[in-house]
Design a protein around this nucleic acid. Structure first.
Length: 813
RNA sequence: GCGGAUGUGGUGGAAUUGGUAGACACGCCAGACUUAGGAUCUGGUGCCUAACGGUGUGGAGGUUCGAGUCCUCUCAUCCGCACCA
């Protein structure tokens, strides 16, 4: 009978379903592995990226299950988000209906791939039960002061009609729709991720060698910790008067306190309160005020593209150490969102300050020796710096901070590039933020017993405004505290909130799902995730948020885990014709069609064979054929098997070809441990199996065939589970799947060893050597075999690498 | 500009930890079989050369008996961040 993937795959998928073969054990004492592929957004159909993601995860889950681990390998749906609302606008479908029907369809697609997911732990993040527990966490964070509401300048996407977190702005555009992001002042909810910045940064060192270094570096840079001095510039009396007595001083931050004597001006962001005051109270020339307003209306990205630009504000501050008067400017390069929106400018030792000073003819004062031309940003000895002159600048940094602290003029400070996480979204299809605005009590959290604050189903989604805001009754409620009429918050949570704790939800036994969001004993047993697999595009967003949430939930007492994902594998993209597969480019390959034509095993085999998982994978239709051929061949060779268990083989009595076949089989077995547990280079394991099969084909010993198939089917089961299970069932009653297979070392003992003979560093010939031969004998053989190349030469050095080669270094005699 | 990676045949990719470069697969070439097919099987296939041989891992140096692998410089491509004071 020839290989019929349809039949075999349907049969085993059904059997696995009936047996509930992939449910983890409730026993929390067994050795465990938690294998997690990032959960999908239910967009409608699977794409090849999904198939790759789940093929990798499934291979690992199946491998560890065979090694007697208790394996948690769950799947679920990251189900809230914009596309559901867009579908509503475009096709008039309700987001809920759209989402759940997509889930049903995609679940079927996943089933046809034969993935070994736990079925009982599946959920969608839009399930009200999930929302309920999430809202409870949010309220607890509020009570701890980790969540706060504030009105501030935010990133606004006009096309998505919502606010975006800093992490969701890519090159000044919305991460989702690519529209340019605008700045807008509005109230919103924020999570104080900066409070955890240090821990998030420090714990990255725990992940060294377990996460791709690239991801660690990206997170480190994103957090962007820098240490320096914060101090106040006091305004001159005249300036104070000009500002109507509203301001005395303002704070600046510098990482270069050693250059403080070189300050020749100070610059403020257009959004700085002092700048704003001057503009709003007509204290500047009209033209200048207009220019400053124009800059304020530009996004940070736009500003970055402009030349340096600034305007004197007609006020001055006093240098805290020299007492000199320093002019204050407004400048387009000063960021409102960092370091208080004000800087001390040292043109001699800072490139930006230099550029600006040159343009506007501001004085430049060198205070560090070194370099020929200015600006000089390197190290050196301080000059012209009062009591700190002649000190090395690295020492001076510390000395100046200390001095400023002693004098009460400033303090050593740490600053982060990381901004607090804005979680408000002005959209319908998300988890409602569970707060109520009461005229008397202010912002009040909903009572726990009233959770979840569920979404109303009867909404009109037009794309204009927030449907929750526009709903006739939903937002009207009573204050949970005083009972008076109040208004419900209509913002919903960023969808990244849901994906920040789902790894804990899976770990929680479903029997407890109603009652608790996270069960501590379950979480502490299953977490951290032993292997997490997903795309590099989440390097900052999801992976940083999930790490943050893990630490917050730990501090709320939900578990004792510090880091959610012990090991991370970032898979490469699936490309076709050198470009990412996408509908708009019309270069997609549909997983359904592929499975239909070749079966799931071929799809999985090709994907794991074509490239190492970390690399990009270039799609190749004829290589898929090759994968199919291999499976067919493997299936066909079942007729070669003569026994139903692992045979005892007298190795020494075998033919040369049979011996070689066994070597190849055991080499593959040897390789498998490293591949499944460490390198994930499935492509090399598959290649080793192909070599083994090729070698088996060159001999005809039934026992060797039996042994070879017994072992190979075990090795390949995680990759091509259906056909491997089918054959193992028929041939060996699946006895070959149990436990770890033993490597028989005698297979690797060779009758004779092939040595390469190199002369003068070049390969010249080969010799066969008895394993017991001494070094002298080997050299003698090598010289004899290499005579031709040794004529007229004098041997200068003789090197014998055991079991490998002989190298004779020569020079003309 | 800063940070991170990657450069190996026509292609995807292998190469213990400094030890035969190109495993395995695709493609291509030749042949076999044939109910003529985009099936299967056999053999070949880095480049130059009729051959001997030479040459070859982006490029240039270096260390070494020996370098894809280590060191220095350099070029190219990709990714991330980007006025962070």
């Amino acid at each position: 009978m020839s290989y019929n993937p349809k039949e075999i795959e349907a049969k085993w998928q059904q059997q696995w379903e009936e047996e509930q073969a992939f449910e983890p054990s409730d026993s929390l004492t067994q050795k465990k592995k938690y294998i997690l592929s990032m959960f999908p957004f239910p967009s409608g159909r699977l794409h090849m990226g999904h198939v790759r993601n789940y093929a990798i995860g499934d291979a690992l889950a199946r491998y560890y299950r065979k090694q007697d681990y208790n394996v948690l390998h769950p799947i679920g749906w990251d189900a809230f988000g914009m596309p559901a609302e867009n579908a509503a606008i475009k096709h008039g479908r309700h987001p809920k209906e759209w989402t759940y029907s997509n889930i049903d369809y995609m679940r079927k697609e996943l089933n046809t791939l034969g993935l070994s997911f736990s079925k009982t732990r599946e959920f969608a993040t839009c399930d009200p039960l999930y929302t309920k527990h999430e809202q409870k966490f949010i309220i607890e964070m509020f009570e701890k002061g980790l969540l706060y509401r504030e009105s501030t300048t935010v990133n606004w996407c006009e096309s998505c009609h919502t606010v975006l977190a800093n992490e969701q702005v890519e090159e000044g555009c919305c991460w989702r729709c690519d529209n340019p992001v605008e700045l807008k002042e509005m109230p919103g909810y924020y999570l104080d991720i900066i409070r955890y910045a240090d821990e998030l940064l420090e714990d990255l060192s725990q992940l060294e060698d377990k996460w791709p270094s690239q991801v660690i570096t990206m997170q480190r840079n994103w957090i962007g910790k820098s240490q320096g001095l914060a101090f106040d510039f006091e305004l001159t009396e005249e300036s104070k008067a000009k500002l109507g007595g509203k301001f005395d001083r303002y704070e600046v931050f510098t990482t270069r306190p050693d250059t403080i004597y070189g300050v020749t001006y100070s610059a403020l962001a257009p959004e700085h309160p002092i700048t704003k005051y001057l503009v709003e109270h007509n204290l500047l020339e009209d033209e200048v005020a207009q220019k400053i307003k124009a800059i304020a209306n530009m996004s940070e990205v736009e500003r970055a593209k402009q030349d340096k630009e600034g305007y004197p504000l007609g006020i001055s501050v006093i240098h805290p150490l020299t007492g000199e008067q320093i002019p204050v400017w407004a400048a387009n390069f000063v960021l409102a969102s960092y370091g208080g929106g004000a800087v001390m400018a040292v043109p001699a030792h800072d490139e930006r300050d230099f550029e600006f000073a040159t343009k506007y003819n501001l004085p430049i004062k060198r205070v560090i020796e070194g370099g020929e031309a200015l600006p000089y940003t390197g190290n050196g000895t301080l000059i012209d710096s009062g009591r700190f002159s002649c000190v090395e600048n690295e020492e001076a940094k510390i000395a100046i901070i200390n001095y400023m602290e002693e004098e009460g003029k400033g303090k050593g400070t740490t600053n982060y590039k990381l901004r607090n996480w804005g979680v408000s979204r002005q959209r319908y299809w998300g988890a409602p933020i569970p707060f109520v605005h009461c005229q008397d009590c202010g912002l009040v959290p909903e009572k726990f017993e009233n959770l979840p604050v569920a979404l109303p189903d009867d909404v009109e989604i037009t794309g204009e405004g927030n449907p929750l805001e526009n709903h006739p009754t939903w937002k009207h409620c009573n204050c949970p505290k005083c009972g008076k009429d109040a208004l419900r918050e209509t913002d919903t949570l960023d969808t990244f909130v849901q994906s920040s704790w789902y790894q804990f939800r899976y770990a929680t036994n479903p029997k407890k799902w109603e009652e608790v969001g996270i069960d501590k004993a379950d979480a502490d047993y299953w977490l951290g995730v032993d292997q997490y697999i997903g795309g590099i595009e989440h390097a900052i967003l999801h992976l940083l948020y999930a790490r943050f949430f893990t630490k917050v939930l730990r501090d709320l007492g939900y578990h004792d885990i510090d880091e959610p994902f012990q090991r991370l594998l970032t898979q490469g993209m699936v490309l076709k014709d050198g470009a990412k597969m996408s509908k708009s480019k019309g270069n997609t390959v549909d997983p359904d069609a592929l499975v239909n034509k070749y079966g799931a095993d071929t799809a999985r085999l090709f994907i794991l064979f074509a490239a190492p998982p970390q690399k990009e994978l270039e799609w190749n239709d004829s290589a898929v054929d090759g994968a199919f051929r291999f499976i067919k061949k493997l299936y066909d060779r079942k007729s070669k098997v003569t026994g139903n268990t692992l045979p005892d083989i007298d190795h020494s009595g075998l033919s040369k070809e049979s011996k070689l076949a066994r070597v190849k089989v055991y080499e593959a077995l040897q390789k498998s441990t490293e591949v499944y547990e460490k390198s994930f280079a499935f492509n090399t394991l598959i290649a080793a199996c192909m070599e083994a099969l090729n070698a088996l084909d060159k001999q005809d010993n039934g026992d060797v065939w039996t042994e070879g198939m017994y072992i190979m089917l075990n090795l390949l089961e995680p990759i091509i589970p259906h056909v491997a299970t089918e054959l193992s069932e028929t041939l060996f009653a699946r006895e070959n799947f149990g436990g770890r297979l033993e490597i028989k070392e005698e297979v690797f003992v060779q009758d004779s060893i092939l040595y390469v003979v190199m002369i003068g560093g070049k390969k010249r010939t080969e010799i066969e050597v008895d394993p017991s031969a001494t070094q002298e004998e080997i050299l003698a053989l090598a010289k004899e075999a290499g005579e031709k190349w040794l004529q007229g030469m004098q041997i200068v050095k003789e090197i014998v690498v055991p079991n490998k080669l002989v190298n004779l270094a020569v020079k003309p005699a």
